[in-house]
Amino acid sequence: MIILVILASVFFHFNYSKDSSATKILRIAHPLSDTHPLQKSLEYFARIVEQNSQHELTVEIYPNGQLGSDYQTIEQLQYGIIPMTIVSCGPLESFIPQMQIFGVPYLFRSREHMFKALSGPVGRELLETGLERGLKGLCFFDAGARSFYTSKTPIRSIDDLDGLKIRVMKTSMSIKSVQAMGGSPAPIDYGELYTALQQGVVDGAENNPPSFYTSMHYEICKYYTLDEHFRIPDILLISKLRWNRLSQEEQKIIADAAQQCSAYQQKVWAEFEEFSMEKLKSSGVEIISVNKMPFVQRVQPIWNQFTGTEIGTWVHRIQEIQ
Rank of each mutant, 00 (worst) to 15 (best):
G182W: 07
V299Y: 06
E60M: 04
R27I: 02
S282G: 05
I81Q: 06
S53W: 10
G182D: 03
G312W: 02
T150C: 09
K176A: 11
I3M: 11
I6W: 08
K267H: 12
E310T: 03
Q199I: 02
G182V: 05
T171M: 02
M99L: 01
P97K: 05
G130N: 05
I220D: 08
H36Q: 00
S17T: 10
D19P: 09
M181E: 07
I254L: 10
Q199E: 15
N208Y: 11
F102D: 00
A205L: 00
R242A: 12
S110M: 03
M293T: 14
G191T: 08
P185M: 01
S247M: 09
R298L: 02
F230W: 13
N15S: 13
I188K: 01
T73A: 08
G284M: 07
Q266E: 10
G182Q: 09
V122E: 14
L197N: 06
F295Y: 15
I302Y: 02
I82S: 13
A46Y: 11
T150E: 08
I321Y: 02
F95H: 12
C139A: 14
S211K: 13
T225F: 07
Y149D: 04
E43H: 06
E310W: 00
L118F: 12
L246K: 10
Y62T: 06
Y224C: 05
Y71G: 10
E250L: 12
Q259G: 08
S239A: 06
Q319M: 05
W314V: 00
E75K: 11
Y149S: 09
L57R: 08
S247L: 10
K170C: 00
N304H: 14
P233C: 00
Q199S: 12
I302C: 03
G137T: 07
I302H: 01
F14I: 09
I81M: 02
F140G: 06
T307K: 15
R47D: 15
M277V: 14
L42T: 06
P31M: 10
Y224S: 09
K18G: 09
H13S: 13
M216W: 12
